[in-house]
Nucleic acid binder design. Structure first.
Length: 490
RNA sequence: GGUCCUGUGGCCGAGUGGCUAGGCUCAGCUCUGCAAAAGCUGCUACAGCGGUUCGAAUCCGCUCGGGACCUCCA
């Protein structure tokens, strides 16, 4: 196990040496989606970032328990008390049971995650499955005198909490600034202070999703489920908590406050990690602003901003070319560049498997492998890793072209490491091979053989006919020095 | 308004106080019946203005631009 992993910790705002609390085990919690709508590409990017992190931790030999929740409770749409339950609203609009909505979008989410090459988490708990635990935590916090009830709702008392504990540390906020910044809220609020947030909300009569509690029928506050489920499955404190940058405040700040209040543990999470936003037209991708692209749109190309579709693998590669902590701007031009780059690596990966050791040259694979490892250990720097893979791709293609002759040992290392980083760490597999590949393989072998003979006879008519017709069928013929190979058109 | 992040070559994107990431595009060459693929070569950028330094794109200040959060959001 390599002990040199550096992780950027949002809490301390610096890179730190990663030291798990109970090695070789690592507990990682990531805020999952709210399933009342389709996930868009921005959501996907964040989850893909944490997939990369998960994969690397595993590669380092850690035994990771990866918990990612499904928010299926539905929360208030706006701050006004008349706000409607999101899932309930959608259910009414679509004439469905709330749980039917939840199921539909959960399925869609899982499907998108699978298509884009993300591993499922170890545990995927739902908020509705942990109502009892959430009520328990509300009770604990109330028992500490850090929450109060008003009209069947329970609020966290931020003022009181901040007398003994830090609030706002993660997001770098000062209580007093927050006070002045949020003064525009109405005075009718049930909250004693505008900074307070709901632990439990009383359900209005129209509310569909509701549960009995000591304070009457209601539903849990948005931040509560994560505090409850992370501590339930990972213990308190635990190693890594991740999520999108936009959740830092107030969500993660409230989560911390809840856990601290309920358990007394002053630092519930050792490493806070935040994935940055995917932007479109320079602006954050966002459901509510209508500035988003759905995964399906991207694959089919049916979107106003796209002229054609892109493969999930190419899109994943596009994500991997940027660091998870940086914003990434999406444009068709950028996607096309990523697609081509991905294609090159994919081709190199295929070529590598066919490569035979023919000499004793070594372009420096040991140093190269070390660089790959270092890149990932430096806060999961996938762009650097990708650059390294291109370096290897150059060697592979040079060897395939006969320009350099690799030694057996070099070839073995190259195979082992390329496979490791390209497939296992970045999650970029070869272009999906269709079923019936073996049959097609043989048929193609025959066709290329016929073409080869035609070419020897300089029967260009036949040769070109074969090439052109295959091209129409989506197969590209690549002529080498004495042999030809083929592949599906990208 | 407050807090914070950011500005890199035609485009996308790493990065470090000194040893010119990488990809895409573009141009030339090699290979080739042609094309494609592949290989080779070329394209030396860090918003602007000051300052610190032997030396800054990298540190500091100011100016201008972009963005995030402060409200549901990955």
């Amino acid at each position: 196990m390599n002990a040199d992993l550096q992780v950027y910790n949002s809490l301390t705002r610096q890179k730190e040496l990663f030291k798990p609390l109970n090695p070789p085990r690592v507990g990682m919690y990531v805020c999952g989606p709210t399933v009342y709508n389709d996930v868009h590409l921005g959501n996907l990017r964040t989850f893909t970032s944490f997939d990369l992190i998960y994969r690397w931790l595993r590669e380092l030999g850690y035994s990771v328990r990866y918990v990612r929740n499904i928010t299926d409770v539905g929360h208030l749409e706006n701050d006004a008390d008349e706000g409607e339950d999101k899932i309930g609203k959608k259910a009414r609009l679509e004439q469905l049971e709330p749980m039917e909505i939840v199921q539909r979008y959960t399925n869609g989410f899982h499907e998108a995650m699978r298509i884009f090459g993300n591993f499922p988490p170890s545990i995927e708990p739902t908020a509705t499955g942990h109502i009892v635990e959430q009520i328990e935590m509300v009770k604990q916090i109330m028992a500490k005198g850090l929450a109060y009830e008003t009209n069947g709702s329970v609020y966290f008392d931020v003022r009181e909490f901040s007398k003994t504990q830090a609030y706002g540390e993660l997001s770098g906020r000062q209580i007093d600034e927050l006070m002045s910044g949020s003064r525009d809220l109405d005075g009718q609020s049930e909250k004693r202070d505008s900074l307070d947030f709901a632990l439990w909300k009383k359900a209005s009569s129209e509310h569909i999703m509701r549960w009995p509690s000591p304070w009457g029928e209601g539903f849990p506050g948005w931040h509560l489920e994560c505090s409850v489920m992370s501590s339930k499955y990972l213990g308190m404190p635990f190693d890594i908590h991740g999520g999108g940058m936009d959740l830092k405040f107030p969500h993660h700040e409230c989560e911390i406050a809840q856990n601290v209040a309920a358990t007394g543990c002053s630092r519930p999470v050792q490493y806070w990690m935040h994935g940055n936003m995917l932007t479109l037209n320079g602006k954050k991708m966002s459901k509510s602003d209508g500035n988003f692209v759905l995964p399906g749109d991207l694959i089919t190309g049916k979107h106003a901003l796209l002229s054609r579709g892109y493969s999930p693998q190419a899109i994943r590669f596009f994500f991997m070319q940027a660091h998870y902590g940086s914003t990434l701007d999406m444009s068709e031009e950028a996607l096309q560049a990523a697609e081509k780059g991905y294609h090159r690596l994919s081709q190199a990966y295929s070529a590598l498997k066919e490569l035979k050791a023919e000499g004793n040259e070594n372009p420096g694979v040991e140093v190269w492998a070390e660089r790959c490892h270092k890149a990932m250990n430096d806060d999961f720097n996938s762009p650097i890793l990708v650059a390294q893979l291109f370096e290897a791709a150059k060697w592979i293609q040079s060897a395939a072209a006969g320009n350099i002759k690799l030694s057996p040992k070099v070839l073995q290392t190259l195979n082992q490491e390329f496979e490791r980083y390209f497939v296992r760490v970045l999650g970029l597999n070869e272009i999906q091979e269709s079923s019936g590949k073996e049959v097609l393989e043989q048929v193609m072998e025959l066709i290329l053989e016929i073409r080869r003979e035609a070419r020897i006879k300089k029967d260009w008519g036949t040769s070109d006919l074969i090439r052109d017709r295959l091209s129409k069928a989506g197969i590209v013929v690549k002529d080498g020095k004495d042999t030809s190979s083929w592949q599906f058109e990208f």
